[in-house]
Design a binder for these strands. Structure first.
Lengths: 112, 112
DNA sequence: CCTTGAACCCTAGCGAGCCTAGGCCTAGCC
DNA sequence: GGCTAGGCCTAGGCTCGCTAGGGTTCAAGG
């Protein structure tokens, strides 16, 4: 999954894995890779800025923990974050459905 | 559908509507809007550059026609365009499935 | 007649956002 | 000592959709 097919949906993906439980940044990358079945193999330079932005926007909160000398920053989804995630899931569904209709060639959704 | 959720998938969408039959640029916009159920309402400044690029890449071919004084450029999908579309459909399916797995929370696809 | 709006075409440049490419630290193994 | 894996970070590049502007003809309305 190269070339940024992901564009515009990354926030949702990060929020989704963190909604299942707090993780530190590096673990978010591994979790995304695992859940997607190796489809999403994102570089650190992609994830860290997203985490920082989401925290700045109040959708994530972070705490520093000390694990055997190594400092880690663990992120948790805030209440606002869960709300945003729910909204983004809806948007994804709408987008995905719309793409499906265009690809399917049907001018109107088959299921009304 | 604002904010470029579409990013990275627009080529596929344009190829898809043109694969159903030749259209001119303006009609591509209307067809995308119609098929998506008003989800994709793209400005001309988005579509025209894409059409030009796809033609430059050999995925589309165009002819100028004269319709009652108004010149039109009608686009057709080339053989290479159909091949690219097929590939992009596969990529979309893979992407969409991967997103589904991440959102679903399953580390492995439920349907093997 | 003149304006408005729809149907068509086009392009320069902005801006959001992902990624490349670098940098830093500790722990553990050879 | 050197190397890898686990962890953190950021400046800047590049891609690409979109904004904002430009043009034309035709039909309708004032």
């Amino acid at each position: 999954m190269r070339g940024s097919t992901i564009k515009g949906h990354l926030d949702m993906l990060v929020l989704a894995v963190l909604a299942a439980g707090p993780l530190h940044g590096y673990a978010v990358i591994e979790e995304l890779r695992a859940r997607s079945g190796d489809s999403f193999d994102l570089p650190e330079g992609t994830i860290y800025p997203v985490l920082h932005r989401l925290e700045r926007e109040g959708l994530l909160a972070s705490v520093w923990s000390e694990a055997v000398g190594r400092p880690r920053r663990t992120y948790t989804v805030t209440r606002a974050g869960r709300k945003a995630l729910a909204e983004q899931r809806r948007a994804w569904q709408a987008f995905s459905d719309a793409v499906g209709r265009v690809l399917g060639g049907a001018p109107w959704p088959a299921t009304i």
